[in-house]
Write a protein that binds this DNA or RNA. Structure first.
Lengths: 227, 227
DNA sequence: CGCCCTATTGAGACTTGTCAAGTCGGGTGG
DNA sequence: CCACCCGACTTGACAAGTCTCAATAGGGCG
């Protein structure tokens, strides 16, 4: 995220934020829960979109792939995130679980209707849409302007901002190097070398391929925002 | 734009689409018109957002710049486009005119209120928000996966899709090479070389720096979508 | 223990960025 | 009307960054 915006974004905003107990109950009455095992799909690109989804537990990944087979990972999703909100007739991306996940499905039509009756819910959806766009604009900025190791810091910063406590220095990466490469517009080799560079420079420590420790958060943030 | 989506996107959708005469009049009653001369600003990053804007005539450019001075152009805007719709407290980008432009300002609060009374308007805004996100995702795809000359084709394809007739082969580029470079995440030199390469290969002809002719649209489209 | 998948590392090719020089064209002043 | 000037664009040579291909290392699981 860019420094210019962080102050007025609450990434923890969910559709439930600020609702009364009664309003929550009305929203909950629409919800059905669903488990998605690691590696399984929540939905596929080009299938009809009839629900929005809220990730309750676990971690998911949103990707788009083209006819020629290459793919771009658009986002990694954390508990509380709303999925498929900028709906059209069909989903425009595929969402799959990186970890065993629990998802709330909310049928589109009643969800829209409820927004008309609960202004706070409508505001939440609006804000969340804004957050999604802002996230995507950050990604455009990163892909357009940053070098490989800066992009990796950009990702690490995003992931660590979802950690329960900001002081947690240990990060569990649920995704593969290929997922990271496809998110950052790089190859796995370049991602690997970028990790190596950050380790050599004492900014992170790599315990295993999927466990990194942030040693110098200030420098990491600086690199993440560099452009 | 990706081929997967083109069928269900109408880029000409505006907030007025499908409104009755009466509804149009109610919307128009909120509107004030404003001229913005070429090079002037519609609004700046970090200023309070109190209106949305619809470009009526001309061409504008949306950009974001960072504290370290580098900038990313997020979009080039054409007549009918809605500007500043994913509002927050403050604008997150700067919008300026590339050509003398005419803009409709619509105060935010009554605009939101009117959406509650005119469902078609609400649907239009929703769809337009979706189009904006889709456009941004396309840009992520382009910056993440495409080579320089493919990115240039990506831009040419976008611009030509706004031409009045699809068969018009002559394109007027209102923006500078620097604007193009900042949009595509390249340098002006690389953009210039990419144009040269496309010309050498007979895909385009360059009459002047700001006038290109599309000679082989099929190949251009293919390159634009390549990934 | 060994297999398989993933990740790392290395060498060389290709693409893009950087720096510098040169060209083009529109606008101004003589 | 022409010459000059200035900004924008192009082109060239080289450096830096990233990709590709190939070989090696590591970790999880049967």
């Amino acid at each position: 995220m860019s420094p210019e915006r962080n102050q007025d974004v609450d990434p923890r905003l969910t559709i439930y934020s600020g609702l009364s107990a009664n309003e929550r109950a009305r929203l909950d009455s629409l919800v059905t829960r669903r488990r998605v095992e690691a590696g399984a799909y929540l939905f596929h690109q080009h299938t009809p979109a009839r629900s929005v989804h809220m990730l309750e537990e676990g971690m998911m990944m949103m990707e788009r792939s083209s006819s020629t087979g290459r793919r771009q990972v658009m986002a990694f999703m954390h508990p509380g995130n709303l999925i498929g909100i900028n709906y059209r007739e069909h989903y425009e991306f595929t969402v799959s679980a990186l970890r065993p996940s629990l998802v709330r499905d909310i049928p589109l039509k009643p969800f829209i209707a409820l927004q008309d009756e609960v202004p706070q819910l409508k505001d939440n959806v609006r804000s969340i849409s804004g957050n999604i766009l802002a996230h995507t604009l950050d990604q455009v900025f990163a892909l357009g302007q940053k070098k490989a190791h800066e992009r990796v810091c950009f990702l690490l910063k995003q992931l660590s901002s979802w950690q329960p406590s900001a002081s947690a220095h240990r990060l569990e990466l649920a995704m593969t190097r290929q997922d990271i490469a496809d998110y950052l517009g790089l190859t796995i080799e370049t991602v690997s070398r970028a990790f190596g560079k950050l380790k050599r420079e004492g900014i992170i420590n790599i315990h295993s391929a999927h466990t990194v420790e942030i040693l110098d958060r200030a420098t990491m943030n600086e690199l993440a925002l560099a452009d």
